[in-house]
């Protein structure tokens, strides 16, 4: 059995192990956790030809520096526009490369994006909690945080030369307003609050972690003498605290809470929302529940077609050069992605 080992010479805050998450435990106070950007996470595994949902490293804006102390393995880095340094070369995220003993791999914040994913052609060794390696960051349960001084062991490693190179980036991500279904507690808001939420620009603040993203913008007034029973919370819930400030709850959200929710972000818009950074501007737009279902289904179908496409090994450099002379690359996929 081949394996590779890495020492973590630096890791910023909120660099964690994540897999597809542990749904089914919200009733026990346990959010599903899992990647902040599920599309980028899935793409990293697809580009390596891995099964879906395996364990990867979620890299925050703080970045990470790994030294390979033994073995060799092919890795994929996806998500946002991060800087990837390896073997004296600097490139952008959405790339597949091989890392060998004695080499250093650096992933750090680039021009855009808050989360990058580092997946290995192999299995990261970690302790599961409730059947999953996903880290619940506030509790520290699951695979856990990746910290400076730690070591990372990858078993069943493979070198996949036929997968090296850039990963075609998804081109189907919309760039309009973040879509929400309003409610369920809009009755607790003062008149005009929902309209203000939907018509005003908001900005991401630096109070942004795996639990949620606090926004800066017009205050959303609650009705007086507010006291609502704690209610269940979904990933994407937009809750408004007593000071009128909205917070979007994300992967490691609380499962119940007493702040009223003005809306919930539809699931297919959470990936791009989570990639925003402090000071980035955003707007919200309301869709009906029926539109939300249709939009998310179409997104998931397009996403699956994209993942299927990037999961096809592209062949060795020689094979690829030959093929690229014969056909023009990704045109079919681009047409599908644009619809």
């Amino acid at each position: 059995m081949s394996e590779a080992k890495f020492s973590v010479s630096f890791a910023g805050p909120l660099v964690t192990l994540q897999d597809a998450g542990r749904p089914g435990n919200m009733r026990y106070g346990v959010a599903a956790s899992g990647p902040m950007d599920r599309l980028a996470f899935d793409a990293a595994h697809a580009a390596l030809g891995n099964p879906t949902g395996g364990t990867a490293i979620e890299v925050s804006l703080g970045g990470v520096i790994l030294n390979c102390t033994s073995g060799a393995v092919t890795v994929a880095v996806t998500g946002g526009d991060f800087v990837v340094e390896h073997g004296g070369q600097k490139r952008a995220s959405w790339t597949v490369l091989a890392v060998s003993e004695g080499e250093r791999l650096t992933i750090r914040a680039g021009r855009a994006g808050s989360w990058a994913y580092l997946a290995f052609a192999g299995d990261i060794v970690a302790q599961p909690w409730l059947g999953s390696h996903a880290t619940h960051a506030p509790a520290g349960f699951g695979g856990g945080a990746v910290l400076s001084g730690h070591s990372i062991e990858v078993k069943n490693t493979a070198l996949r030369e036929d997968r090296l190179g850039d990963i075609p980036q998804p081109e189907f991500i919309p760039d309009g307003p973040i879509r929400v279904v309003t409610g369920p507690q809009d009755r607790y808001f003062a008149e005009g609050a929902v309209e203000r939420f939907l018509s005003s620009p908001y900005a991401v603040t630096d109070a942004f972690d795996r639990m949620g993203m606090r926004l800066d913008g017009p205050e959303l007034d609650l009705k007086a003498a507010l006291s609502i029973p704690s209610e269940p919370i979904a990933r994407g819930s937009v809750q408004v605290s007593g000071d009128g400030v909205p917070t979007v709850l994300l992967s490691d959200h609380q499962t119940t809470g007493g702040y009223p929710k003005i809306a919930t972000v539809i699931s297919c818009d959470i990936d791009r929302l989570a990639q925003l950074r402090a000071k980035d501007k955003l707007r919200f737009a309301a869709v009906s529940p029926e539109q939300a279902v249709a939009t998310c289904r179409s997104y998931l179908e397009t996403k699956q077609a994209y993942l299927d496409q990037i999961s096809i090994a592209r062949g060795t450099l020689e094979q690829r050069l030959m093929r690229e002379n014969l056909i023009s690359g990704w045109s079919e996929g681009d047409e599908r992605a644009a619809t």
Partner: peptide
Amino acid sequence: FVEAVPALVNLLVSFDVMATDH
């Protein structure tokens, strides 16, 4: 069906959007 979350006065029932709808 994905999961249900009971709270004080209400229950959240979540589902797979590819399999069903509200």
